[in-house]
Design a protein around this nucleic acid. Structure first.
Length: 864
RNA sequence: GCCCGGGUGGCGGAACUGGUAGACGCGCAGGACUUAAAAUCCUGUUGCCUGUAAAGGCAGUAUCGGUUCGAUUCCGAUCCCGGGCACCA
């Protein structure tokens, strides 16, 4: 009987499902003395194309850990679900005129079937779908919690707005405005990234991806919902330190948050005749207060509020034209034109607070309105951007920092001359010159001194800035979570009560975009028009929907308690299972999903709904699998590998094994059909090692005998290596599999193989290739799933070597080798080396300078 | 430009804490089985040189240099590839 993977895999998949082998009982029914292990995959977006080979790579890795930990006696939670809101289903709906719900269900069915065919040990009874009403009810619920919270700066945490102190003496309207200004979810007219092709706005994070796809993105001012993630910038940054995440992801997030320390400095605007009586001043942000004596001009971003107030009448037209032109440019265009900086003089002058120098104030679009104060001080001697601009605009350059490498007067003189001419622009640290009270100080001390001074004189203070912006949270789409909000006729809005959730999506016929920048929902009168339950007033529903990231911000919590109708997740369950012990997914989610999810979890933590600071303790990114031609798989290239075909030709076990064997999990590596043949060959070898292909029963060479010493050593070394590789932080499954191959190769050389050895081997193999392991386990006479077997332990008695090959070197070059007993004493090794024939030949007549001996390793003879 | 990774046989990749470079797999070559092929099994496989052989020598982990008795591993410089960010003051 040949190894019939198709039949075997089907059989065991059915067995696992029928017998609920991978069902995880809830904590109340668990043996809590055992440790828990939560192995989580980033849940997929179920697309119509079905699974690609990249999905199973990460899923296989978590599955190996999940199965291994079950064998180890852990309570394991391993789950799967669907991140099913999103544009593709909506676009399909527009084209075919059927509800995205229907299309989504089809795609989910396809994905589920494909995943089941790979034999993953998910607890399918916990399957979730972000588009289910019973799921997004809780997404909306969490949104309400965010909406109804504010950030308490003193306690550094979110609190319910009911605890917000409202300034006294405010009118009802003022109170309403004040509260809204404090909420963690707020409506604001902001410049957004509008994508005309998609008919929606995009978050900053989504822009590069869409541009890559060929869509255009333009700046537009629109009223949008935002989440105040910036309040969490510091915690999101600090708490990264304790996470067991790849360094690159942490670094990416740190850069994204982009904390910088500097100072805000105020420059008073010198009053001209026209604006006499008004006290305008420009606040700038700089990380280099020490260069303040080198400031020769100020720049306001075109969107800066002061522009219209300080511009002198004779400059009004020019400035106005410039600001308008800048407004038409998208961020992209502004960036692309970076080499050609432009600006316009406002006619106004400002006064440098440290030396009273009068400097011109300009408008230029290389300064971003959204960062810092939207204004900068121009230090063309020591900032490359300012330098570029100053040269173009013919502005003065003053050198104020000398690099420390220049010591002699001559060098310093040459450097300052080059700087003045604009030939050199040094932006590093150094010694201050031409700088009044900080002359001669090193940058670090100069900064301190300037900060002290401006604080004393009230001209400024230390300040911290982040690149991170608030999260633009609304989309003009149909297929997303509706906001649980209504707008009243008086122009105010209010949140619905929890009891009114979920706000369901309507069933409609046409999903075309309104074209007005509103969601398709805006055209559905029966859905929009509603009444305020509390007061009975007429109201209209908010027509924006949430971005796709919303559902994925908390799905890992819903798995813990998927059917709960009372709460989003039972606190006891949350406490038991969280944090996630292993989270695997693609590196493309390093910033977006992982920052958003951390943010939501932290809000829930602040409000007391969850019990840890961070949701994902250990994170791992699986690498990309390229096509056989070494480039990214794509339909247009025709190099896409379909898992269904692979399973049909080689089986799920071979596929799992191969994807793990290709190389390190995090590496990008090409698919290879020849490669998977090798793994299929390996499983066939395993089969024939145990099964007599004529009778289909266990071979007579598999005997009820204790393994001999050599076999024991082989077995225990294999147990050790496989166990250590699975436990290893880097998840070295490729080497674990290579040891499994080695032991099989060795067992093939044995005339008789102990059943004990075979059985332990099968347990080692089972997390990687579970179907064949179950089948052989059954053939060996077991009636319980191999998943219930405990993981083999190794005995160090058998894992240590009893003899080792020691090398003899001359001047570091290997000249001879010798097999010796383990732990042979150093002096004996030395003698062995010195009297070795080959060594003797070569050191003859030479002087021995010294001999270095390392036990069990080598003897190195240094000669002259 | 900046920040992270990474460059090892024909290919995917191994190599503990500085101590035998190339595990395992693919491919290739030779052999066995077969009428033949496939499948399977066995042997060999970094390159070059000497040798009938056994064996031995030289070079070798992107390049150049350094530290060391000894470097794929540590340090410095350079080149190349991948990913991310990109006027963030």
């Amino acid at each position: 009987m040949k190894y019939n993977y198709l039949e075997i895999e089907k059989k065991w998949q059915k067995y696992w499902e029928d017998n609920r082998i991978f069902r995880t009982p809830d904590p109340e029914d668990l043996d809590k003395s055992k440790p828990k292990y939560y192995a989580l995959d980033m849940f997929p977006y179920p697309s119509g194309d079905g699974l690609h080979v990249g999905h199973p790579e990460g899923f296989t890795a978590t599955d190996i850990l999940a199965r291994y930990k079950r064998n180890k006696g852990f309570n394991v939670l391993h789950t799967m679900g669907w991140d099913a809101f999103g544009l593709p289903a909506e676009q399909y709906a527009i084209k075919k005129g059927i509800h995205p719900k229907i299309r989504t269900a089809e795609c989910v069915d396809l994905f589920r079937r494909q995943l089941k065919a790979l034999g993953f040990s998910f607890d399918w009874e916990r399957e979730i779908n972000t588009t289910d009403e019973t799921y997004y009810k809780w997404t909306q619920w969490i949104f309400l919690k965010i909406f109804n919270s504010y950030y308490d700066e003193k306690e550094n945490r979110a609190k319910p707005v009911s605890e917000l102190k409202i300034p006294e003496g405010l009118s009802e309207k003022e109170k309403y405005d004040y509260i809204n200004s404090q909420r963690l979810a707020y409506l604001a007219e902001v410049p957004v990234n509008w994508c005309p092709e998609l008919g929606t706005v995009l978050s900053n994070e989504e822009v590069p991806e869409q541009i890559e796809k060929g869509f255009t993105v333009v700046r537009k001012n629109m009223k949008q919902w935002n989440l105040r993630i910036t309040k969490y910038a510091d915690r999101l940054l600090k708490d990264l330190d304790d996470l067991d995440w790849p360094n690159s992801v942490k670094e990416l997030q740190r850069n994204w948050i982009g904390k910088s320390e500097g100072a805000k400095i105020t420059f008073k605007v010198k009053m001209s005749d026209e604006n006499k009586g008004e006290n305008y001043s420009v606040e700038v942000y700089t990380t280099r207060p020490d260069t303040i004596f080198g400031v020769t001009y100020l720049i306001l971003a075109p969107e800066h509020k002061l522009v219209e107030f300080i511009t002198t009448p004779e400059k009004k037209d020019l400035v106005k034209a410039y600001v308008e032109k800048a407004g038409f440019k998208s961020d992209m265009e502004r960036t692309e034109l970076s080499k050609n900086k432009t600006g316009e003089f406002t006619g106004a002058f400002a006064v440098n607070p440290v030396n009273g120098k009068e400097i011109p104030v300009l408008v230029a679009d290389y300064v971003l309105a959204s960062y810092g104060t939207g204004a900068i001080m121009g230090v063309p001697g020591h900032d490359e951007r300012d330098n570029e601009f100053a040269l173009k605009a013919g502005l003065e350059i003053i050198p104020v920092v000398i690099p420390e490498k220049y010591k002699s007067e001559d060098e310093i003189k040459q450097f300052t001359e080059r700087t003045i001419k604009g030939e050199e622009c040094y932006s590093g640290e150094g010694i201050s010159v031409n700088s009044g009270f900080i002359n001669g100080l090193k940058t670090e001390d100069a900064i301190k001194k300037v900060n002290e001074r401006i604080e004393e004189t009230g001209a400024g203070k230390k300040a911290i800035n982040y690149k991170l912006r608030d999260w633009l949270f609304s989309r003009q789409r149909f297929w997303g979570e509706p906001f649980p909000l209504i707008h009243l006729e008086d122009g105010t809005f209010k949140a619905l009560d929890e009891s009114e959730l979920p706000v369901k999506l309507p069933d409609i016929e046409s999903y075309n975009y309104s074209g007005t920048g509103e969601s398709p929902l805006a055209g559905i009168d029966f859905w929009i028009n509603t009444t305020d339950k509390e007061t009975g007033r007429k109201a209209k529903r908010e027509t924006n929907t949430m971005p796709q990231w919303a559902g994925s911000c908390w799905y890992y919590l819903r798995y813990l308690d998927p059917d709960n109708e009372k709460v989003f997740c039972d606190p006891a369950r949350e406490k038991f299972w969280m944090p996630v012990d292993l989270y695997i997914g693609g590196a493309e989610h390093s910033v977006l999903h992982l920052i958003y999810a951390r943010f939501w979890y932290k809000i829930l933590f602040d409000l007391g709904y969850v019990s840890y600071k961070e949701p994902f303790q250990k994170l791992f990114n699986q690498g990309m699998i390229l096509g056989e031609d070494g480039v990214k798989m794509s339909k247009s290239r025709g190099n896409v590998i379909n898992p269904d075909d692979v399973i049909r030709n080689f089986g799920a076990d071979s596929m799992r094994l191969f994807e793990m064997f290709m190389g390190p999990l995090e590496a990008t590596k090409p698919w290879s059909t020849k490669g998977i043949e090798g793994l299929s060959r390996f499983l066939n070898r395993v089969w024939r090692l145990i099964v007599d292909e004529n009778t289909g029963t266990v071979k007579s060479s598999v005997v009820f005998e204790e393994p001999d010493l050599n076999a024991l050593k082989l077995l225990h070394k294999t147990i050790k290596k496989v166990t250590e590789d699975i436990e290893d932080n880097d998840m070295k499954f490729n080497t674990a599999i290579s040891y499994l191959m080695v032991i099989v190769n060795e067992m093939y050389k044995m005339e008789k193989i102990s059943r004990i050895m075979i059985e332990k081997f099968l347990v080692l193999l089972s997390p990687f290739a579970p179907h064949i392991a179950e089948e052989l386990w059954e053939k060996l006479g077991h009636d319980k799933s191999i998943q219930f077997e405990s993981w083999p332990e190794f005995n160090t008695e058998y894992t240590k070597e009893d003899s080792v090959t020691v090398v003899f070197q001359i001047n570091g070059k290997v000249r001879a080798k010798k097999e010796v007993d383990y732990d042979t004493a150093e002096d004996i090794l030395e003698d062995l080396a010195l009297y070795n024939e080959n060594i003797l030949k070569q050191i003859m007549g030479k002087q021995i300078i010294k001999v270095i001996t390392i036990k069990n390793k080598m003897v190195n003879i240094v000669v002259k």
